[in-house]
Design a protein around this nucleic acid. Structure first.
Length: 605
RNA sequence: GGAACCGUGGUGUAGCUGGUUAACACGCCGGCCUGUCAAGCCGGAGAUCGCGGGUUCGAGUCCCGUCGGUUCCGCCA
């Protein structure tokens, strides 16, 4: 190595004893005993102990070593020696050895960092983000970035070996219809017109199939201008894959293999194939979610038939009017939960959109509390039987439309699973959710919307229903779910123009609108489009789950805060007046009042 | 757009129903110390309690607003 570095800090082992070594890195910690000085030197591979012993090192070098402080950047030459018996440090991968320094060079001094870089002190996240370059020095963050790199590399290797080509698609493009708000980029050359940043490369990857590429992938940056969450950033990365001349099973098979390959290589976990497949309907009924967390029980059960003839009007009326009564047997919670905790469940249920949460505790005699009093002993025992409950169990019910039941109970299930510690965080809940509906009715928009996106192909036998009965059309779509998080979603695409046109029509687009938005795309269908399909993975989310992090910010090198700001660079920031003029943009009075646009060359602040 | 929680030396926290000089640990600076490894011992500096109002004889503490962070709902696959 040209910089004279012979080893990385964390790689030195007993085998290196007796070697001369030159290492470079940051002073992680110093322990100055007056006579002898220990330095833990850190680089991205880990720590190694450097010893400055006045009997070994020259006096002026020792004086230099006394001046070392945390985060100084140094280069040290010395002899690798085995540590004396009893002096080994089992907490360090390099704990069997240490470097007896002979030469020290301070390459750069450092101010005391604003927060400690060791693992055991919690730090305010705003501070971490402001000094992200320091935060990223922490070994934990470096390990995550390394993991991310490794997964990307494995994905590339896997797909390359199977004939996929990595092709880039434009960032400055036309608005694509994912349903989210676009980030717009004003055009200087075309006054008044805007590019949109891609929400996904959806149209381009389909056009690549039309272009005969056959197999494509990309690790693609995507942008959606919506409010953030712990698992949502305005810019994020998708692993985007598309294949021609395939059906649903072809794609799911190869993707499963990729999943198994990654789990094997990254976490050493054997994934049994084929993956479990759950229909959308079953997922909604049993787990109340289209992305069920299958790592624990507490499944939802339908007791509509059992309770429809009881005198409890809330139940019987709901069933009579076409609704459902569904519940969860919260095993053991009847004994464990305080009344206050049960009330909290009710409050949550209301917040999730139910009229109320009905409950009772199963006892030897039948039941107590909640809605017990509305039932005869016989009705009660039938209900308890249907819920497979035993004394001490808490039964909770929601009586409402199927969607509300699923939504409320699904969320309560997740809450309870976490609260009661039922989730085994060492297992991986991997499955496919298949047989999606093609459409979802949007109450706010008052019209049908694509459940996935408007290019998803319906099942062939459902094509006729497109305009007649949209709610009945099933999609050739599949979602990959991991630990209750959607990590991937895909479908077989429409490859015939008339089907695509009918799809647009079903979504309420006039043919003029379809033409102006997607004319180029519709035209492309006319020139020989192969059947094709694919999938897109939320790459950041996958990494987050593999790294067992709770926030996307921990797996993205330079993430944004909940208010979509970058605390390090200060982005977004004010544009100078001249820039705006070139872009043919004028601020509204409200915006102007807020930012005070500087008229001269000085940007920011 | 809405809700909740948080904001106290450089960092992490404590500070009760409002009451005198804001406490502790780590870090930092200085001294001592030749085998530590989250070194030890001694000493020292360092905070107008995010910001602005208000209530009060008196506010870190109560109220209102505002800024920042986080989480959730809406929004978003």
């Amino acid at each position: 190595m040209s910089f004279e570095r012979t080893h990385y800090c964390g790689t030195l082992r007993a085998e290196d004893i007796g070697k001369e070594a030159t290492v470079c890195g940051w002073v992680h910690r110093r322990r100055d005993h007056g006579g002898v000085i220990f330095i833990d030197l850190r680089d991205r591979t880990g720590l190694v102990q450097i010893v400055f012993n006045p009997e070994v090192v020259l006096p002026d070098q020792f004086t230099q070593a006394e001046k070392l402080r945390n985060e100084f950047v140094i280069r040290v030459r010395g002899m690798v020696r085995g540590r004396l018996l009893g002096m080994e440090n089992p907490n360090l991968s390099t704990g069997a050895i240490e470097i007896y320094a002979t030469t020290l060079e301070v390459l750069n001094e450092a101010k005391t960092p604003p927060f400690a870089l060791d693992a055991h002190t919690g730090v305010d996240e705003a501070l971490r983000l402001k000094y992200r370059y320091l935060d990223l020095r922490r070994l934990e963050m470096q390990e995550t970035l390394a993991l991310r790199h490794r997964v990307a590399k494995l994905v590339r290797d896997f797909l390359d070996a199977r004939g996929f080509w990595e092709i880039e698609t434009p960032m400055l493009t036309k608005s694509t219809p994912e349903g989210a708000r676009d980030f717009l980029v004003p055009s200087r050359v075309q006054p008044g017109e805007f590019y949109a940043l891609p929400q996904s490369p959806q149209l381009f990857k389909q056009l690549l199939m039309m272009a005969g590429i056959d197999r494509y992938f990309q690790i693609a940056r995507c942008f959606r201008d919506e409010d953030l969450r712990a698992d949502r950033q305005p810019e994020f990365t998708q692993l985007d894959i598309e294949m021609a001349f395939v059906d649903r099973d072809d794609i799911m098979n190869i993707i499963e293999e990729l999943v198994a390959f990654l789990f094997q290589e990254v976490v050493g976990e054997e994934v049994k194939l084929p993956l479990r497949r759950l229909s959308y309907t079953e997922a909604m009924e049993r787990f109340g979610s289209d992305k069920p967390d299958t790592r624990f029980g507490l499944e939802i059960q339908d007791v509509s038939e059992v309770v429809q003839d009881t005198n409890f009007r809330v139940f019987s009326d709901t069933v009579r009017s076409g609704g459902h009564v569904r519940g969860i047997n919260v095993e053991g919670a009847g004994d464990k939960f305080a009344r206050r905790e049960i009330d909290e469940l009710g409050e949550r249920a209301s917040a999730y959109g139910s009229k109320g949460l009905l409950w009772l505790i199963v006892t030897e005699e039948g039941g107590r509390g909640g809605i017990t009093k509305f039932f005869t002993a016989e009705e009660l025992s039938r209900l308890v039987l249907a819920m497979q409950a035993k004394p001490g169990d808490l039964l909770i019910f929601v009586a409402d439309k199927a969607k509300v039941c699923a939504d409320v109970l699904g969320r309560l299930r997740l809450f309870l699973g976490e609260k009661m510690g039922l989730i085994d965080h060492d297992t991986w809940g991997l499955l496919w959710v298949v047989d999606w509906p093609l459409f979802e009715y949007s109450e706010t928009e008052g019209r049908w919307e694509a459940a996935h996106h408007p290019f998803t192909a319906p099942l062939p036998e459902d094509v006729e229903l497109l305009t007649k009965a949209p709610e009945k059309v099933r999609a050739q779509a599949y979602d990959l779910v991991l630990n209750g998080t959607e990590v991937g979603g895909g479908s077989i695409r429409i490859h015939r123009r008339e089907v695509q046109e009918r799809m647009f029509a079903a979504l309420g687009l006039t043919s003029e609108e379809a033409q102006s938005k997607f004319g180029f795309f519709l035209d492309a269908f006319d020139y020989g489009t192969p059947p094709h399909g694919g999938i897109a993975w939320g790459f950041d989310r996958l990494i987050m789950l593999l790294a067992k992090k709770n926030s996307l910010r921990d797996v993205i090198a330079f993430p944004k805060t909940a208010s979509a700001q970058d605390l390090m660079t200060g982005a977004p920031s004010v544009a100078i007046d001249g820039q705006l003029r070139e872009l043919h943009i004028r601020l509204t009075p409200e915006a102007e009042k807020k930012v005070k646009v500087p008229s001269t060359a000085k940007k920011d602040q």
